[in-house]
Design a protein around this nucleic acid. Sequence first.
DNA 1: ATTTGACCTGGAGTGCACTCCAGCTCTTAC
DNA 2: GTAAGAGCTGGAGTGCACTCCAGGTCAAAT
Lengths: 136, 136
Amino acid sequence: MTYSIAQAATRSGLSIDTLRYYERIGLVEPPARDAGGRRTYTDEDLAWLYFLTRLRTTGMPIRMMREYAQLRHVGVATSARRRRQILVEHRAEVRERIAELQASVEVLDYKIQNYEEIERRLPRVAAENALIEEAS
Amino acid sequence: MTYSIAQAATRSGLSIDTLRYYERIGLVEPPARDAGGRRTYTDEDLAWLYFLTRLRTTGMPIRMMREYAQLRHVGVATSARRRRQILVEHRAEVRERIAELQASVEVLDYKIQNYEEIERRLPRVAAENALIEEAS
DNA sequence: ATTTGACCTGGAGTGCACTCCAGCTCTTAC
DNA sequence: GTAAGAGCTGGAGTGCACTCCAGGTCAAAT
C-alpha cells in the first residue's frame, strides 16, 4: 500500500508543502516515485512522519531532528547510542517544559481567581476594584 | 525603588532590546524617565513583566498578550470579564498542550526503551539489529 | 576636560519553519 | 484528443519574535 503526497499529508497532519520541504532539508528520505515521477509514500514513511510530528510537537528544533534523521542512515551499530542519547536529553527538556507550563497554569489560576473575586464585587462597589486590581 | 533598564532586564530575564521592543509594540506602558531621559522601571512594572514572561512561557502569541495588556488600561469595570475570559481560554490551551507533551514523552519512552534493548544485544549480534530497528 | 560606559532612537537584519507561486508535466475522465 | 486536476521544480515570500546596528546624548570617574 502506498500513498500519494495528498494522502500522506492528510494522514500525517502535515501540509503537502511541508512534506516537500522536509524532504528538501533532509528530514525525510526522498520517497519512491511512480511512473509519472510522483512521490509514493509507504506505511514506513508515514510512521517516520508520525514520529517527526511527535518530535515537532515537543518543540525539538529541526536541526536536531535532522541530526537524528541522518543517524538512521549510517547503520544501527554505529549510531544507536547517539540516537538514544538525543532522545534521552530531549525527554528531559520536555519534562522541564511540562513543569514550566504547570507552574504557569498556577499563575493563571491565581489571576483568574482574582478576577472572579472582582466580578463578584463589581455589581456592588466599583471604586473598590482599583484597589483589588492593584493587589493582583 | 526604581530600576535601570539593565536591572529590569536582569530581574525579568528579558534582554534590554526585548524590553524596548515590548514597549514599542504596546505590550508594556512606557516607563517613567529620569532627568537624563533614561527609563526607570518600578516594582509594579517588573511585576507586569514577570506576568508577561509567564504568558510567553505558555506560548501565548504577542498579539493576544497585547490585547490583554491594553484591556488593563480601559478600566476594571469594563474589562475584567474579558480579561478573565482570555485567561480562562488560554489556560485550557495550556492544559491541552501539557497533555500533548505528556503523550509525546510516552512516545519517547517507548523509543528509548527500544534503543536500550538494541544496545543490550549489540555486543553479541549485529545482524539482528536491522530487524529490531524495523520493528520500532 | 576628556574618556568611559550606559542608555537613547529609528530602522535594518536574523533565524525559524513554513507557505506560496509560476510555469511546467502527467494522468484520467469525458 | 482535449480539458481538468494533481503533482512537479526552483525560488521567492511570510509571520513571528526578537536582535543588532549606527550615530548620538548624558553622567560619572580620572
